[in-house]
Amino acid sequence: MYAQENKGEAGLDQGDAADRLTRLWVANHEDVTRFVARRLDSALVDDAVSETFLVAWRRLEDVPDDARPWLFGVARNVVATRTRSEGRWRALGVRMARQPVEVSPSADDVAIDRLELEDAWLRLTAGEREVIALVAWDGLTTEQAARVLGLRPSTFSVRLTRARRHLVEVLDAMAHRQPVPSRKV
């Protein structure tokens, strides 16, 4: 992460601005691309990423030192807008079933079945998937994730706790279901 110095508009000439955006691009392009790819049709990812950095370019003075949550917040709005406008939303994790994933036994030696986890994931609400994904997939701290959603950290923590609890409850319910039916994936 590059340390950034916030300057007023008058103090950031075109050369400085170009240099700063270039550093933002190099430092964050891959993370922003992954963030968008998790949430949007693959055909739209590149455009959405460019649009995100275009917003950053036009609002460089607003980009904080910790730029990644800010960029994710912008990207989230770009994705939401394209979703509402074009109807190409891909719910978080809808493509998981096609991913080759190895899930190791957890620390308490209780193996979590991959297919059951996928199934449970898709039973969560979009909001629950969002808060979990920001931490588990996007690698944000609670405070950073709260910034992405425009929430207080305490509010985000409550939502994350609820979402995790719901996920565990769904997994528990599956574990107790007898007999286990064949599951569409």
């Binding site: 190099v26 899930v103 209780v110």
Partner: peptide
């Protein structure tokens, strides 16, 4: 959390590489 770790391994973009260059 073990569940969160398991979810992390399901990340559909985990293998995506897209480094930005100047």
């Amino acid at each position: 959390s073990p569940v969160m770790k398991a979810v992390a391994e399901l990340d559909p973009a985990r293998g995506l590489r897209s480094p930005g260059t100047p």
